[in-house]
């Protein structure tokens, strides 16, 4: 890719008069040698699957394999449709849709990792609800996914996108930043405004730990996706309003790296700290393990694999 930082990405967009989406599509084609039409078709297929995951999560009974989660998306949708949500109708719909996709994920349903499965609800939540609200075409939304991908590409290569490496800030935080920046572009904002929205969003999730109960992608991951979608809408609004991230967004990304690297392993997807180790978190974990026989160790004669980089 021609860009390594958000600043470079915005500069290419500005200098060449192209959207972030267009820059991403062109660079992807140049990098992989895959024809443009194939790249766009694959992303369009992914968007269809995102819409399907939203639909499934809102209409089918999704229960996770552990039984710990499910059914919250429908509750929030009911409030949006029949009640008076404090955050307003668009926010509560984005929240319901994001919860829906994350619940589908927990029930072993089909999702698109954006950027990971743990954070797969935020982008579909923001995109599908905004498409309905503003009457956008699928083509417009697919472009938005390329814009989100360009932002995520910079974050992933300068920091991280997995909870095991950098905590929840790396998964849910990255997804919020990607959704916020992409939404600014979808609504006609400039590349510069989009980049400020990314920085503003990321600042709000710095330090967020990854502490899932029993190590599962359920508690608190699903709820964080719902709330993350609302954050993304808010950060996009700040960007569109002209609010600037006083600390440039690339510098915020580097802080995510700094904070994630300093995070203790108990707060990086091990289930050994945070919410997972609360009295209730431990009780839920014990309940899941009850009656479940641990795996037998493999027989001695089978030599264990030895490789480098073992922890």
């Amino acid at each position: 890719m021609r860009f390594r930082t958000l600043k470079e990405l915005a500069a290419i967009s500005l200098n060449e008069g192209k959207t972030l989406a267009e820059v991403m599509i062109e660079d992807q084609a140049a990098e992989t040698g895959v024809p443009r039409e194939e790249i766009v078709a694959q992303m369009a297929d992914y968007y269809e699957k995102m819409k399907e995951a939203v639909r499934r999560g809102l209409t089918e009974q999704t229960v996770s394999r552990s039984g710990l989660s499910g059914g919250d998306a429908v509750k929030v949708l009911d409030l949006a449709e029949n009640g008076t949500p404090s955050s307003g109708d668009p926010s509560s719909r984005a929240m319901a849709y994001a919860l829906a996709v994350s619940e589908v994920n927990a029930s072993m349903g089909r999702i698109i990792a954006t950027p990971t499965a743990g954070s797969c609800g935020i982008i579909p939540g923001v995109f599908v609800s905004s498409q309905e609200r503003f009457g956008w075409s699928d083509e417009h939304m697919v472009n938005g996914l390329f814009a989100a991908g360009a932002i995520g590409y910079v974050i992933a290569n300068n920091s991280f996108i997995s909870g095991a490496e950098g905590g929840c800030q790396a998964e849910v935080g990255s997804a919020i930043g990607m959704a916020a920046g992409a939404l600014v572009e979808l609504r006609g904002g400039s590349a510069e405004q989009a980049m400020h929205a990314v920085g503003l969003a990321l600042k709000n999730t710095l330090g967020l730990i990854c502490d899932p109960v029993a190590g599962l992608v359920e508690i608190p991951c699903i709820v964080r996706n719902g709330l993350g979608a609302v954050n993304a809408l808010a950060a996009a609004d700040m960007g569109l309003a002209g609010v600037r991230s006083a600390i440039p967004s690339d510098e915020v990304v580097s802080v995510m790296l700094e904070v994630g690297a300093a995070m203790p392993s108990g707060h990086r997807e091990t289930g050994q700290g945070g919410l997972a180790q609360t009295p209730t978190g431990r009780k839920l974990t014990e309940g899941l393990m009850k009656g479940r026989k641990p795996l037998e160790p493999e027989a001695e004669e089978a030599a264990a694999p030895v490789g480098e980089g073992a922890e």
Binding site: A113, A117, I123
Partner: peptide, 18 residues
């Protein structure tokens, strides 16, 4: 991460990419 589909994607059944 070398391309846009390692950020948006893969298409997968849940719950965990890893």
């Amino acid at each position: 991460f070398k391309n846009v589909f390692s950020i948006i994607g893969p298409s997968m059944v849940g719950p965990s990419s890893s």
